[in-house]
Amino acid sequence: MDKEKQHTIFSQPVFRHVGERGLLVEFSAEIDLETNQKIHAFCRLLEDDLPEGIVEIIPSYRSLVLVYEPLVVDMPKLQEKLVILYGDVESAIDLNAEIVEIPVCYGGEFGEDLEYVATHNGLSVDQVISIHSGTLYPVYMIGFTPGFPYLGGLSEKLHTPRLATPRTLVPAGSVGIANNQTGIYPIDSPGGWQLIGRCPYKLFDPLRSNPFLVKAGDQLRFIPVSRQDFFALQTETT
């Protein structure tokens, strides 16, 4: 945890209204791991003692949004409660967040841009794989598409700009890099990330009893696997 950044966390939560049924609760003006851990801890505290009329709790990088029923929720009371929780949140931070292992088959037809990422950063392909899979990535938030994790912690050695022209179809499971971010495409979609590999699991399957493999607040580790293991794992899970 970066001590120097502690002062960026607000001493009191900052509230902003999102229409008549949303409340944005801001923790900091910037992105950092400690702020984000606090946000997830705050969400857990709130869920344990959920005030009536709350429809959604949506954590994000440096804030969260509460969606509420405007005719049920007493706003001044709710804000009072949130301020108290904000004071208690320190002790609720989970320093042992769940680690989710994501197998990745790097390169080949699964990671067409792996060579480019290596060349761009003056590294060998093996070095890219070793750096990318040697990091524990915090899941700051999920969004954009179902199950898409916004990850922190990509090594500066791997930063690579987006493709000049996005692909019209990126297959689900593709692992990519765009600027200072790395991530996984949970569903087939268009996209401009540099693709370095693919995960055989479905990050999101609406018909599975638990539709999502990863939740905000988890930590994620990529495990390199061979093509053979990729197909074996894929068969195993379908």
């Binding site: 959604e56 949506i58 969606v67 939740k215 905000a216």
Partner: peptide, 8 residues
């Protein structure tokens, strides 16, 4: 409702 935190 309840799934926006998962991107739905």
């Amino acid at each position: 409702f309840g799934y926006q935190r998962y991107g739905v």
